[in-house]
């Protein structure tokens, strides 16, 4: 099975360091979600994988060996900045790209047919790309990334601009390629999708990886949080409990972070002292919370990384 590995990538533009020791591995059959704020270094990382940018340090390996030009050709790539020849017909364009990736004419034509049918743009084969709607152009762009049966997939924001139907098609294609043993990396700001699709998630902030683990591990990592619903509790009721730290307090519920298991019982006791308690439940941070924390640089996820 193919394995893609990024080892200690660094990149600077002038004095501005945009990547600092970025490393991660994607195994065949695995989908890695790559998230981070705008400008955090996702696109730079992907461009380095594709050889479009040269890193200042570090390397990209496939099965333990540095990627060569022929192997780069076997990567399916969807750049963040979408790009196709606007005045070229959909079919000719995909044929051409498939042939540039090394397919012969017949195989290129067959692959073009197959992918345009799967992605629902087969009836537009003879139309110029610029005449297609933006959504359909996106589908053609995805077809362009898939048309040469890539052995590795690197997709920068593949879901942006897609309608819900296309999102489903795209999701199923990614799952299917992964199931066929292809390592898949994609970046996205749609964290619910990342959470649903990915086996693992890497979070990058200001050029450094701040988290890299399964969604499950990321969510259960960090200090446990509890949600307490005690309607008659006055404000600040939990502040006196040792080892507890109020994350948020509102009329409906209070969220308390505890230093270790067992403290929540003292929190409960404090809550009961104010009146009835309707609920005490463990809160797992959503990926969105983790992302927000990671981007903000709070310790929550940095501990999770350890």
């Amino acid at each position: 099975m193919t394995r893609l590995e990024l080892r200690s990538l660094t990149k600077s533009y002038g004095s501005r360091r945009v990547l600092d020791d970025v490393s991660f591995t994607v195994d065949g059959g695995e989908i890695l979600g790559f998230v981070g704020a705008n400008g955090a270094g996702k696109t730079t990382t992907m461009r380095i994988v594709l050889g479009v940018l040269v890193p200042d340090g570090g390397e990209v390996l496939r099965d333990g060996h540095p990627l060569d030009a022929a192997q780069r050709r076997s990567i399916g790539y969807m750049p963040e900045e979408r790009g196709l020849y606007p005045k070229m017909k959909v079919g000719e364009q995909l044929d051409y790209l498939a042939r540039l990736h090394g397919l012969d004419a017949a195989a290129a034509r067959a692959a073009t047919r197959e992918w345009t049918e799967r992605l629902g743009v087969a009836e537009r084969l003879g139309d110029e790309v610029q005449k297609l709607s933006l959504g359909n152009q996106q589908r053609v762009q995805l077809a362009a990334a898939l048309v040469h049966s890539p052995e590795i997939l690197v997709l920068d924001e593949p879901f942006s601009g897609l309608d819900p139907v296309a999102v489903d098609v795209m999701s199923s294609v990614l799952r299917e390629r992964a199931a066929a043993g292809v390592p898949v990396v994609f970046s996205s700001h749609q964290l619910d999708l990342v959470e649903r699709l990915c086996d693992r998630v890497g979070i990058i902030r200001a050029g450094s990886m701040v988290a890299l683990d399964t969604v499950e591990a990321l969510r259960s990592g960090g200090a446990p949080r509890w949600r307490v619903v005690a309607p008659q509790a006055p404000a600040g009721w939990a502040a006196a409990v040792p080892g507890a730290h109020v994350v948020s307090e509102g009329p409906d519920a209070t969220v308390v972070e505890v230093t270790h298991d067992g403290v929540e019982q003292q929190v409960l006791a404090a809550a009961l002292a104010t009146g009835p308690v309707h609920e005490l439940a463990r809160v797992r941070p959503s990926l969105t919370d983790l992302f927000r924390d990671a981007v903000a640089g709070t310790p929550h996820t940095q501990e999770a990384q350890a």
């Binding site: 461009r47 594709l50 050889g51 479009v52 780069r72 050709r73 990567i75 790539y77 750049p79 900045e81 979408r82 790009g83 196709l84 020849y85 790209l97 540039l100 990736h101 362009a144 990334a145």
Partner: peptide, 9 residues
Amino acid sequence: RVVEILLAT
């Protein structure tokens, strides 16, 4: 921007 997929190949 088609140059990016071309030069990735």
